[in-house]
């Protein structure tokens, strides 16, 4: 868990926790566009968006991780990731705020200790401290598995 190969990370805030994921998997960062609800899907699946003619499902990380939902505001953003470079693997993640890109070289990674009882995500690559904040590194593979309906 404490091993960390990702060189560059994108950090963001969900509820009052900070998370990060491999920046190389990130394709776009968008403001919240019109989201078309897809009926009969789990609550975390917010629907689909039209991104340059491609249909991309969008997951609300707040719901996926068991936090309470809030209204979207100006900081709310969608991070579009493409885990394996295939177009059909694209997934939008709704986060409360995108923070920054962090070079992870030389950063000391510790095992993640968070209470994630309600969360669909339980395994993290680790946690590091940055600007006096703990940042948990998300395991994209687990995220992808959790997002499948």
């Amino acid at each position: 868990m404490s091993e960390q190969q990702d060189k560059t990370l994108l950090s963001f805030r969900v509820h009052d926790e900070f998370f990060a994921l491999d920046a190389m998997k990130v394709n776009h960062i968008l403001e919240i566009p019109k989201i078309t609800r897809v009926p009969n899907t789990p609550r975390f699946m917010k629907g689909v968006i039209n991104l340059h003619g491609n249909i991309i499902p969008v997951v609300d990380l707040r719901v996926l991780m068991g936090f309470s939902e809030t209204e979207y505001d100006n900081d709310t953003a969608i991070i579009v990731i493409t885990p394996d470079d295939q177009q059909d693997s694209s997934l939008g993640l709704i986060v409360d705020m995108v923070k920054e890109v962090i070079e992870a070289d030389g950063i000391e990674m510790k095992p993640t200790v968070v209470d994630m009882e309600e969360s669909h995500l339980k395994n993290f690559h680790g946690t590091f401290s940055f600007d006096n904040q703990f940042v948990h590194v998300i395991d994209i593979e687990e995220l992808v598995t959790a997002a499948e309906i």
Partner: peptide, 11 residues
């Protein structure tokens, strides 16, 4: 258009 692999099993 396909909706991506996350929604393929939609009923």
């Amino acid at each position: 258009k396909p909706m991506g692999r996350y929604l393929t099993s939609h009923e």
